[in-house]
Design a protein around this nucleic acid. Sequence first.
DNA 1: CTCGCGATTGGTAACGTTACCAACATAGCG
DNA 2: CGCTATGTTGGTAACGTTACCAATCGCGAG
Lengths: 338, 338
Amino acid sequence: MSTFRGARQPTIKEVASRAGVSPMTVSRTLAGGRNVRPDVQERVMAAVKELGYYRNENARSLRPGQPSGLIGVAITNLANPYYGNFALGVEEVAAEHGRRILLGNTGEDDARERQLVSDFIGRQVDGLILVPTSGDAAHLRPERLGDVPLVLASRRVPGLDVDTVLLDDVGGAYRGTVSLLDAGHTRIGFLGNRSSVFTGERRYKGYERAMLERGAPVDLSIVARDQQDVDAASRAAKAMFDLADPPTAIFSANNRNTIGAMREIGRRIREGVAGPRPAVVSFDDFELSELMPVPVTVIDHDARLLGREAATLLFSRLDGSAADEPRTVELPVSIEFP
Amino acid sequence: MSTFRGARQPTIKEVASRAGVSPMTVSRTLAGGRNVRPDVQERVMAAVKELGYYRNENARSLRPGQPSGLIGVAITNLANPYYGNFALGVEEVAAEHGRRILLGNTGEDDARERQLVSDFIGRQVDGLILVPTSGDAAHLRPERLGDVPLVLASRRVPGLDVDTVLLDDVGGAYRGTVSLLDAGHTRIGFLGNRSSVFTGERRYKGYERAMLERGAPVDLSIVARDQQDVDAASRAAKAMFDLADPPTAIFSANNRNTIGAMREIGRRIREGVAGPRPAVVSFDDFELSELMPVPVTVIDHDARLLGREAATLLFSRLDGSAADEPRTVELPVSIEFP
DNA sequence: CTCGCGATTGGTAACGTTACCAACATAGCG
DNA sequence: CGCTATGTTGGTAACGTTACCAATCGCGAG
């Protein structure tokens, strides 16, 4: 026989018989006690405590019209502190509304995203918050999601018109690039995500617009747009710096690329490699940016706030206070000069 | 009338009537199709697809003995990249076992932890993984958790003997401190969590042991043990450096304290404040540590692996392959010199 | 051609909960 | 004191699913 490790969860019936009442009276007491005599409520609560009873939320949400109290959240990369903060913001607002979050990590994998969404629906989530990976919207259309509201965060999905929270990617990238141009740079390298990533595309747009507006050449030999992780970014930066005419400044479109670039820059400085000491503009803040060996301008924003906004949008759908047309919230970014 | 936003989720009955079979046949088909004619399976799958049917997992887990497929995970601070990685590790292993995670953030708040655990139980989680905040074990005892297995991560709870994954906090802190002593430092400041935090206490133990062993004085005026966030850590570091006899080296017991200390050190260097340029040992890695203006030794470990180990321990309980007595896994840490 | 056996299918009940209705108690009112 | 309004309590059914059992079907062996 195996060691005792606690019994089955007690049911409402057991609580009822312990308190000498019917299950309905227990249910009513737990629902706030309307129309239950105070002394009966006390007996019920005592039985609840003694037995260690918790309401079975799954059984509860089985009744029609009852919300499950779950929000499905799928993000692309929890290891990125940006998304940790995003998830935290969502969690906070969800908790304020008495909801829990079901969290999944897609790792930028379409198939995994579809699987997660199916599973979330199967678990009767009241709503979905998604940092989409996919360029394909089929699994996110209303006829697939039923009546489950969806909020997209950080990125859009082509052809899908739903509530969305975004950063001012284009404007931020534009202003960041302009600040480099104003400082006299004309040869500005670009490091970013592949263009199928929505933010990657938008941030590139901002960079490109600034360059073209000022008549600076956009030289594709110093534009690298396919790095998803730090190591790839380092390699891309190295390739650029090793060119005969390396860039004098770098615009990095996200945190991962910035860290990779800084690693490479730091290595060159430490090892005394000849070449430029480029100025850097980073879309996304990173810790200790003020201690870097080259000046770093940071395009900063609040991932936690983005998460809060996404959740707020979702709950405004859930309580019916939202208008019908899909809304987009675009959060401003701030620029911090070195 | 409100805009159409999709219909109720279809039920197994609707799929059944669409396919011209009974609900049981649908259920069997979805369960793998044993003893269902292939052509019937095809009809069922077609109906599933047409209607956009997803099994209701909540209703499913209502049947006795059925697992809910949910793992409750409560961590203390999602904004800390360490815990983001931890959560990622748990999520990965859970996904490999076909489970989803319910994620909650405690923010180092006892009450919130108790509330999360209650809620997780109410949602019939198959298991719990917890980075405990509380010094109190009442809500985590078997008689409260029923038959839900629990794994603690990073920290222990006094008086609670359950499966636990830890880092080699004491050994890591000891070796880190010794490396400073070996370099000739004797006046070594300590920055860490309040002692009620398990890791804070363990890491202080390692520091203290090294100091005492080598006959270096443990001077409480350069021991600050109550900083939970970066700003507090900065202030504590500033106070230490402003002393008449400031430390020549700093042992920082965690990521948040290290970042805070580095901020202050960087500020002093930038602003040309006189005083020591302390060597730093940091328990917990941080990005770009190699670019810091003072030498930083990093006691590194893999939070993601810690998460994976916690989940692995949990699943070995769930599938019954584990022995009865609680196990502790202590993961090694590595030291990287500057 | 019939019997028997395995494969396939469907009906029923139960999981834990709560909405709805009915029953009963009590108090207030004329 | 009887009648109604209100407060309190319990019984029943239903939510969506699947385990169990019973029924039916098809096929091969005798």
